[in-house]
Amino acid sequence: MMKFSKDHEWVRVEGEIATVGITDHAQNALGDVVFVDLPEPGRQVAAGEACAVVESVKAASDVYAPVAGRIIEVNAALVDDPGRINRDPTGEGWFFRIALEGPLPDDLMDAEAYARFLEGL
């Protein structure tokens, strides 16, 4: 099941592990991604905490942890090929995995609610 944040991250929860990336809307708004700064594995993050940076040709943007927990893995393939984020934002363009701590935040949206949220922007 995929959920979405107001900051345009997606999170896919499998058991106690959440995989996080940025949405198609976000990659489209950013444009061609040329660099990512990923968090250190082992780092504890709070929901809403800035923990990665994505740079496109035109600008830098923070990526926030949509859920609280501990970073257990990052997508190292993005370092050499950040274009994956544009080509496949919800697949090969994933950013990091978090070992969940506590419940999911209430303000995460399902796909339908996120689509409505985008229409309201």
Partner: peptide, 10 residues
Amino acid sequence: PLHYPRGILA
């Protein structure tokens, strides 16, 4: 226009 559909890089 900031860019067209092909994007800044292209």
